[in-house]
Amino acid sequence: MEANPDEPHGAAVVADGFGLKGPRGWVFREVGLRAEPGSLVAIEGPSGSGRTCLLLALTGRMKAHEGHAEVAGLRLPRKMAAVRRISALGPVPGVSDLDPALTVDEHLRERALLQRRYDGSVRALVRRPAERAAATRARIDEALAAAGLDRDALPKSGRTSVRDLERLEALRLSVALALIGRPRVLALDDTDLKLSDADRAEAWALLRSVADAGTTVLAVCSEAPEGALRITTTADAGEEPTGPRAEVADAADDPDDADAAVTDGGAPDARSAGDTPAAQATEATEATDSTDDTDDTENTVEEGESDAFAETGRA
């Protein structure tokens, strides 16, 4: 089905009393958020404050236990499979890691083939091979341009291995891979990790450009950039929720800019608790296969397996 040109490409993200409980207590709780399509949302906080779990829950990869959220009008946690279909992960350690042994071109070809296999239309499948190849190249070039990655500028062009990429180059590649699917929501973890001040500024400029093009961006970071809708998480164990505001970064003096609030019940996130985000996301997806509403007939075990395969790019 063709998209309505009058509708924004990105997805609105709304949360109300959203919370997730892990084996050691609440990972995050009482999250409130309202982001318009094409927003840049920075999930800010220290490591161990539940940032990654919140990111995965908002993209349908972990099941929340209280409250609800909506992504493009799809209610979570009941419509997790549908939200996964319209969202894509950039770099998320333990979930969507790049393979250091593969080259840039190999990653791009693999993702394009998987995209065509799992999300291609019937019309695309009956095209002549030359037409399919041209469409694939065009989609890859479009994603690379949006991510600002110039293959010719790499040490060995497209034959450069991932292990030889700089941190910012690897980030751009991960974003390009995610954008091949033309998602309505792009989610990234550890956006500013191990980046210099100059590279951090370039990374946020990249994500702003993606958001300005219409895709809603959710980015985990240690410090939110100016102008982003900021959600702050804390890792103060044992404290009662206090409701710090989510606001436009560097606009905290104006109470009208406080669009949402997020609190943390003090439990560490998946990595600090000894469970990887990949493991918790898998458990959440398996649990949801039996709890999604009965109207979501496409949410089957087979779909969950293909979602996981398409997300990582390999079995």
Rank of each mutant, 00 (worst) to 15 (best):
G214L: 14
R75P: 07
L56D: 12
V83N: 06
D236V: 08
L76W: 10
G266V: 10
R85N: 00
S49R: 07
A203Q: 05
F28S: 13
A64D: 08
P93E: 06
G181N: 00
S290Y: 15
D192P: 09
G274V: 08
E226K: 09
D99A: 02
L195I: 06
D236H: 13
R208I: 06
A146H: 06
D212G: 11
D16S: 05
A170C: 10
A143Q: 04
R61C: 12
L108G: 02
D141T: 07
D250A: 01
E7F: 08
A211W: 07
A201G: 03
G45E: 09
S174Q: 01
T136G: 06
S196G: 15
L56E: 12
P37I: 10
L206C: 12
A57M: 02
S222C: 14
G94Y: 11
E303W: 04
L193D: 13
P91Y: 00
A284Y: 01
A261F: 13
D97Q: 07
T263P: 08
V122S: 05
A145V: 09
L165W: 11
D212Y: 06
P241Y: 07
E240A: 05
G22S: 12
A203D: 11
N4F: 06
S157V: 04
A219V: 00
D264G: 09
A228P: 13
V185T: 01
T216W: 03
H65G: 11
P23E: 09
A228T: 01
D264P: 11
T263D: 13
S161M: 04
L206K: 10
D199L: 13
G48K: 07
T300H: 03
V83M: 03
G266R: 14
P183H: 00
L144K: 05
D307N: 15
L76S: 09
L89T: 00
A153M: 14
G73R: 08
S196W: 14
R117Q: 01
A315V: 12
E36P: 04
R78C: 05
T291Q: 15
I231E: 00
A249G: 12
A64N: 13
L74F: 04
I231F: 05
G227W: 03
P46S: 14
A281H: 12
A205P: 02
R182Y: 05
V31Y: 06
M62E: 09
E247R: 14
